[in-house]
Every structure is written in C-alpha cells, then in structure tokens.
C-alpha cells in the first residue's frame, strides 16, 4: 500500500485572500477518499498541489516524490483540451499501454464499443470517460505501494450507468493499494462510495473523517443549501435529499 500523504500548513496565494489553506491534512492510501466542497472551495487547487502542477506558497508536503513524478501519480484534470482525431483507443494508448490494454480499460468502464470511434466525435460524457480510462491505464502501470491517483470530477457529464462503472473502477484501484482521491459534486453517487471525506470550504479544511461525521445535516444546509442527511445502512451510507433550503 502507498504511504499516507501528509500536508502541513500548505497554502496557495491568491489575489486577495489565499486561494487555499493554510491547511494540514493526512490522506490515507488504499482508501476511497472523497474531496467534497461547494464550487470554488479549492478542490482543484488542492489537487493541483498534490499533482505537482502548482507549487504551494508555503508549508510542507511529505509527498513530493524523489523519483520522477510520472512514475508516482496519475492525474485526471477537470478540463481536457484535446482536439485531435485520435480514436478512443489511441487516446488511452497515450498512457503508454498497448491497444489490448487500452481496450480492456475501456471495457471496464463500459465504453468498449466506442474504442474505434474518433475522439472528436464522442459526446461530452464519453469523451470524459475516455480520459478517465487513459488516467486509469497510466495508474495501473505504476507501483501500487507508492503511487497515487488524483481525479478531478471523474463523474461529471456521466449518466448513472457509466458513473457506477467509473466508481467501481476507482474502488478496485484503492483496494489494490493505490492512493485514490476523487473530487466530485455528485454527492448522491459519491457518498455511498467514499470511505473518507475531506470537506473544503472557501479554501479551508472544514472537516475530515467518516462520511456521516463530515456531511452532517447542518453542513449540507450551510454549504449546499439542501435539507438532507446521510443515512447509514448495512450496505453503506446513503445521501437522502429532502429538498432545497432558501439559505446557502
């Protein structure tokens, strides 16, 4: 299993207030970690720091790998600008895998039928799924005792069938020992999946821990403007959404 990942007083400067932090946090590997928070809370900024794309303005990170970054983490960014008519399979192959491996990962996500379709002709959701497959194919080549996967909104634009396949694929990587961090807004889908939740608000760490302890009815109302609660059931936690509150 990958060693856990610790941030101490990490912060990122913004124009007026810091965009992120200072925050201190320990992320355990081998768990399904959900990075939650309303729009603009700093989730993508935190993932950019963890991925090495953005250097923190201060603080320490136990993570910066001594070996090459590409050998230690795979990253799904929130936006992709690819505009080249590769087939879906060729896009996945850019992770450095064979066509057969690429097709297998696409199959795992339920998108095997699209392998030979030009990427530029895919719908928005399927194009995202192809990038998720590329990043999973990258992660699969790395050492499960040392590598992390950072996924910024892997569920965006996906219908429930594909979202379910994506979450199962992410669970398999966590179970294999990889560190897996997922930022997502689809709390109804992500709550049953998550084992550990990190809640960011306005660049600050609001809470972290088990799903039910972090996503309390008060916080759901305050940060998302919904009345609801997390129901613990035998098969896992479920988010019950009762309606929208005026506040928030």
């Amino acid at each position: 299993m990958s060693p856990s990942l610790t941030l101490e007083n990490i912060w990122v400067a913004g124009e007026r207030a810091p965009r992120l932090g200072p925050l201190s946090l320990t992320l355990p590997a081998g768990q399904r970690i959900l990075l939650a928070g309303p729009n603009g809370a700093g989730k993508s900024t935190l993932l950019a720091v963890l991925s090495g794309d953005l250097e923190g303005s201060g603080g320490t990170l136990t993570w910066p790998p001594s070996s090459a970054w590409a050998q230690r983490r795979a990253v799904l960014t929130q936006r992709n600008t690819l505009d080249h008519p590769f087939t879906a399979e060729e896009v996945v192959c850019l992770a450095g895998v064979s066509g057969a491996t690429a097709r297998a990962v696409l199959e795992e996500l339920g998108a095997g039928a699209w392998a030979q379709t030009p990427y530029t002709r895919l719908s928005g959701g399927l194009a995202r799924l192809v990038h998720l497959a590329r990043v999973l194919a990258h992660l699969d080549q790395l050492d499960p005792t040392a590598a992390w996967g950072f996924f910024d909104e892997p569920l965006a634009h996906l219908d429930w069938r594909y979202a379910g396949a994506a979450l199962r694929a992410l669970s398999r990587r966590a179970a294999a020992g990889y560190g897996v961090v997922v930022a997502a807004h689809e709390l109804n889908l992500a709550v049953p999946w998550a084992e550990h939740v990190v809640l960011l608000c306005a660049g600050r760490l609001e809470a972290e821990g088990a799903v039910g302890a972090v996503l309390t009815p008060d916080r759901l109302a305050e940060h998302w403007g919904i009345s609801g609660h997390v129901d613990r059931r035998d098969e896992g936690a479920v988010l019950i959404l009762e309606g929208f509150t005026e506040a928030g």
């Binding site: 794309d53 795979a74 990258h138």
Partner: peptide, 9 residues
C-alpha cells in the same frame, strides 16, 4: 493532450 496532461505523462 495539452500541456498539463502531457506533463502528467
């Protein structure tokens, strides 16, 4: 893929 994604690989 783009500058960021290419760097990731």
């Amino acid at each position: 893929l783009g500058d960021r994604e290419a760097t990731h690989h």
